[in-house]
Design a protein around this nucleic acid. Structure first.
Lengths: 349, 349
DNA sequence: TTGAAAGCGTTACCAC
DNA sequence: GTGGTAACGCTTTCAA
């Protein structure tokens, strides 16, 4: 725990000035510093285990190389996590670091969080939300290059907020592809058991579902389009109700709001003595880590491009920082259809 | 995006010197600065929306009020997330901020991560791992007050590493309490289907399980103590094998390695036409967010005290920073028995 | 009660 | 080719 070596220590040891140390260590020694001085400097730096103090450098450069992340639920949810991981990876590859603060669902706290981050002189900001969300953009976000990951500015946001780059999953296409997958397997009686319409994603996916049905010339049974929640228990309940009908009258395929609800649907089918996917196909949504792929049977689903959302948000911010004019407005990232073993050909009946 | 106001701007506007501004804003105005000057300063600060530049302050104070978190898998896993959330909450309540970097499973990268964090002049460090782990402590961690969350120093760590505070779940007691819960429900034929012995947690929980059985005078069937993995599929497989035996010869209760494996066990029971918990009880471990509590039936489990582990690790570091001599060595945090509906009285047979 | 000055560690500029 | 100096924004000490 001895004090860290400074450039001055290195200079002294090498018998040169601090400026020389700075030049050499930043790769601009050639043409400015004598060869043997350079060697002495490098040697001294290595011996003292010297690395520049990033804080001092930040102050001097007026840029911290830190991007602030504000998240409404970063840590307790595996979703934000993926977004943050993507953002962090891109940042790191460009010599930046991310400073994440979690408001733990307390929407008021984001003002504070942004302020703290700004005080720390972050060079840019990204707001990350768990589910696709409308967001009242906190004022301070417009003070530096910023982006919205998995959310978009609400109309009552401060002026200018609507021009922020907003990276979102392409939910319409996702819903469409999920339905098209089932239709391709011969299903005609498909139920859309979305999560909760309080999330804008559900209506978008429903629109995609309806488009796919229309393309195939299939009718949509309106009593099979319903809210079945985001959790195992409500998914279980909704599926039980639907699947209790006799074979010819029940859906042959269930489109769940997310993977956990789909797990509930698979459990419900098992309870009713129905085999998945022989008697009924079940699709999830999200491709949630640690759930979808390890389920029995492994869940067919639509993968949310969370990591890419994080990456693109960071690219937008870093791009603006590099002087490339700021990216503007929404950017839709495709969701990837991920068929596994919970979907199969429609039963004969 | 206009430049932020500095203390000098405030001073000019209030017609005083920078020192006065600093004194007043740090609450030491009384007795040093005239009342009306104080008011003018406060007013000017508010008008200019002034807050001190944390970077400059860090440089000046030689302390950044940042604690670095190194995690082997912070973000993609819901586990590290809880630990980080706990650590972050404690840090924030004390005016600190956390800077998290994820090595994304690349053990070599932690050296780099620590170095980056140290370059940023973090005041302390915490290493966070997903599962209870032996850890080769990276050299640099000893340069500042540090703690290990959910891990402990391996023998080949640098000297001094073994004295680091190490916050761990009390797995032995956790395993004991899980078994005791089942025994209390009248079960005598209990299978211990641990995860993988590559995790030190499994042997500890097994020890607790054996202790509880011994206390109750119950024999342990050695062929019912086995590795059943961490995922739904292997849990499913292991339970299927065990539960296929006739009623009198199969276990009446299954102790799973974690919640996901337990989900597989519940699925296996359902497949075999067994009701949980009437015919067989199933316990998980971890109390994993978004899995255990929403399962059908809701899973009885043992809750890992992840949030508290994060909190205690942060307290240890902050305590050392406050001059309180550093905490030393391991600290075991109790795991909480969390009975729900997947366990019930032992069947009559 | 106030203001001037030093210093934290860095880098860029400018004399030498 | 080299080294001194200023500046980033802050806090603290010291002198007026």
């Amino acid at each position: 725990m001895t004090r860290k070596a400074t450039a001055l220590d290195v200079a002294r040891r090498a018998g040169v000035s601090r400026s020389a140390v700075s030049l050499v260590l930043n790769g601009r020694g050639d043409g400015n510093v004598a060869k043997d001085s350079q060697e002495r400097i490098l040697a001294a730096a290595a011996e003292l285990n010297y690395t520049p103090n990033a804080i001092a450098r930040s102050l001097r450069d007026q840029r911290s190389r830190v991007i602030g992340l504000v998240s409404d639920q970063a840590v307790t949810s595996p979703f934000d996590g993926e977004i943050i991981a993507g953002a962090d990876a891109v940042a790191r590859s460009r010599g930046f670091v991310t400073l994440a603060t979690d408001t733990e669902q307390d929407a008021l706290r984001d003002l504070d969080a942004v302020r703290t981050l700004l005080d720390r002189q972050v060079d840019g900001l990204i707001y990350v939300t768990v589910g696709l969300h409308e967001l009242h953009v906190p004022q301070g976000m417009l003070a530096v290059p910023a982006a919205l990951a998995n959310c978009y500015a609400s109309p009552d946001s401060p002026p200018g907020a609507s021009a922020l780059p907003s990276i979102q999953p392409d939910e319409v296409t996702g819903g469409h592809d999920a339905a098209a997958h089932l239709i391709g397997l011969g299903h005609r009686r498909i139920a859309f058991l979305g999560g909760e319409y309080s999330s804008p994603a559900v209506a978008l996916r429903e629109a995609g579902f309806r488009a796919a049905m229309a393309e195939a010339g299939l009718p949509v049974r309106e009593d099979w389009v319903l809210e079945a929640g985001w959790d195992i228990a409500p998914g279980h309940a909704a599926a039980t109700a639907l699947l209790s009908a006799p074979a010819g009258e029940r859906p042959t395929a269930l489109l769940g709001g997310n993977d956990r609800a789909a797990v509930g649907m698979v459990l419900a089918a098992a309870r009713l003595g129905l085999d998945v996917p022989r008697d009924v196909s079940v699709m999830g949504y999200d491709d949630e880590q640690r759930v979808a792929s390890v389920m029995v049977p492994a869940l067919s689903t639509v993968a949310l491009p969370l990591r890419r959302i994080g990456e693109e948000a960071m690219r937008a911010v870093l791009g603006a920082l590099d002087g490339g004019g700021p990216a503007r407005g929404p950017l839709l990232i495709p969701c990837e259809l991920t068929p596994r073993y919970s979907t199969g050909p429609a039963p004969a009946v």
